[in-house]
Amino acid sequence: MASPILVGERLCKSYVRGGRKIQVLDEVSLTVDKGEFLVIAGSSGSGKTTLLSILSGLDLPSSGRVILAGRDITGLSEDQLAPLRNRQTGFVFQAFHLIPSLNALENVMFPAELGKDPEARAKALALLQRVGLTARAGNFPEQLSGGEQQRVAICRAVINRPALLFADEPTGNLDSRNSEGIVELLLDLHRNQGTTLVMATHSPALAARADRLIRLHDGAVVPSADRTL
């Protein structure tokens, strides 16, 4: 039996906006096993991105806790979370979030350089070659198409070979041809490197290929045996 790499226990998240309390997550619990490909599905506003943010340690839950690789990360400070984000997890965003002042190569190298990896450049070049962007290594984000930017973002997310990769609607801003390429790339990484993949998506094609799917509705997990979205 596979051991869990990520556990979310009774996660709640609420905000106060304009004097009104908004409950985004309500007692969400889940477990992700090592090497698993989990899809979090749900309509817009159901709390997918918030759940992903909390599970990856980018945000704090109002209550509940997150255990990553056996360690409770809920109470960790930003500086305690930094090495975890750098080595154990990777994140791919819908809006890419590349650093605009760095070119493609530098963007990919960045996490490895932060970890003082002397092979950062070589690894980044190899990844870019793998995604077919060697010729675009010197280009800045604004000079790349959406699909190219997302490929760079994926390379950046995996350069330190994280055990866990979070992806938030990675194909949400892409056309179908680019989406397909990105999906293949993510699944390839998941299969070949054994990376655990936790993805929030609207894509039925992606959901169909997941090991498991959980569905959110109004911030709560709803039972579903059906993988269709």
Binding site: D79, A82, R85, N86, H97, F110, G115
Partner: peptide
Amino acid sequence: LARLEEAVHYKILGGDTPF
């Protein structure tokens, strides 16, 4: 906004406050 975005990027990618 740009600085905020940069700071968030650094943190997401593993940069700590001193960095």
